[in-house]
Simulated scan of single mutants.
Amino acid sequence: MGDFQLYKYTPTMAGAIIFGATFIVLLGYNIFIIFQSLSKVNLQTRGSRPYNKNNESSLSLSQNNVWRFKKQVLPMFIPLMVGVLMEAVGYFARTPSHGNKQLLTPYIIQSILLLIAPSFIAATIYMVFGRMMRLLNASDYSIIKFKYQTTFFVVGDVFSFFVQSAGGGMMSQSGNQDLGPKIVIAGLIIQMIFLFFFIFSEIKFTYLINKMPTTASYGNIKTSTMNLAPTDWKILNSTLIITSILIFARCVVRVVEFAQGFNGFIISHEAFIYLLDGLLMIIVSFLLLRVRPELVMFELMNQEYLEEASYNVLSSLQA
């Protein structure tokens, strides 16, 4: 490595442990609420009959929603859990550097994981938004063809992830200290471009659904169905906008950091990695978990099927 310094300061052990432990708590909370939500939705349909298109009672329809919940909703939170785990490992990896700033392996681990973890968290946001729009029958409010919307954002997110990973790995290699940051900046800019279009999509959706509400968006899911979710889709939508903006702001900070170079102000002051990266990701993760998006979507599923069942009953009475 020659005279090249991995850190321009002595990494704090206390900060690394506190932030690493905080992300571990968030990961544990994430796992807990997933199992809790699964238990709640299973309890709602205990003793009900299997779904049968010829018997569309609310119980059978609700049980079909449990299957959809397991197969379509819960997997969306895997990227979030992976991202939170990466954040935890990344901050814990900084602890050995407190005693030896030139340890290469911990530096590479924390550098890459803290850089790419938000991409995984953003992937969950993209998928939740797409599923919510579908359940609200608001696919016409998408800025691109709806069937490609989630794929478009997730693929862009994955692409930026690979570019950032490549740049992060090169930064610690002798002779690549100039090229590595440039590749990281390119990856961050790609992520920011997709985040910008996503935020625009969210804001456009919010405007249109308030101006021209869909039938599904009228219902108050906290009172009209099973009352499992602590919030409704409007609060969930606002949370998705806020968390997207926070991730975007974090990307701006990291772009400025790498643009300034290894002797820049941001990279030379440890506080930035905690306050304008780690803290923002803690807030993002907590907000996503707090609004319980999985239960909001389950309530929307039940509202959708209860309305369908009611329509079928009315149709049969009129026949």
Rank of each mutant, 00 (worst) to 15 (best):
S160E: 03
V158K: 14
L6K: 02
A21S: 08
F272I: 08
D232F: 06
V66M: 00
S139H: 12
I18S: 10
Q44P: 02
S111F: 07
A259P: 06
G28I: 01
I273L: 15
F265K: 10
F159T: 10
P230A: 12
L228P: 07
A249D: 13
L26E: 00
S310K: 05
G99K: 10
E87D: 12
M81F: 03
N263S: 15
F258G: 11
A14Q: 06
N263W: 05
H98G: 09
G2R: 12
K222T: 04
E56W: 06
G278Q: 01
T215M: 08
S111G: 10
A122L: 01
M81G: 01
F146S: 13
S217Y: 07
V253H: 13
F196L: 15
L115Y: 11
T150Y: 10
P96M: 04
L275V: 12
A117S: 12
F32S: 00
I33Y: 00
L236W: 00
S310N: 12
H98F: 12
F152R: 09
A271W: 10
F258D: 00
V296Y: 00
F120S: 05
T214P: 07
A166C: 13
N54Y: 04
L103P: 10
P230Y: 00
V84K: 03
D232A: 00
G219W: 04
Y126A: 08
L246E: 03
I199G: 09
L275N: 06
E257C: 13
A319R: 14
F35Y: 11
K70L: 09
A259F: 07
P50L: 08
P118F: 04
F19E: 02
I209W: 02
E294S: 01
G47D: 03
T124S: 08
M127S: 12
K204P: 13
T105M: 12
K40N: 04
P96G: 04
I78C: 04
V291Y: 01
Q63Y: 01
W67A: 08
I221D: 04
I209E: 06
F152N: 11
N312W: 15
N312P: 12
P79A: 03
K182P: 11
R68K: 07
N210D: 02
G20A: 03
T150H: 09
P213C: 15
M1E: 05
S310E: 04
T214N: 11
L188M: 11
P96R: 09
V155R: 07
G20V: 05
Y218P: 07
R68I: 04
I241D: 04
Q63R: 14
G99L: 15
E56K: 03
N55V: 11
L113W: 02
T214Y: 05
R49F: 03
A88R: 03
N64R: 08
V252A: 03
G156I: 05
Y305H: 07
V255K: 14
D277I: 02
G28A: 01
Q260F: 08
I267Y: 14
G278Y: 05
V255I: 08
F198A: 13
M76P: 02
Q260Y: 02
M301Y: 01
P293M: 02
S48N: 02
N42K: 11
G168I: 09
V255H: 09
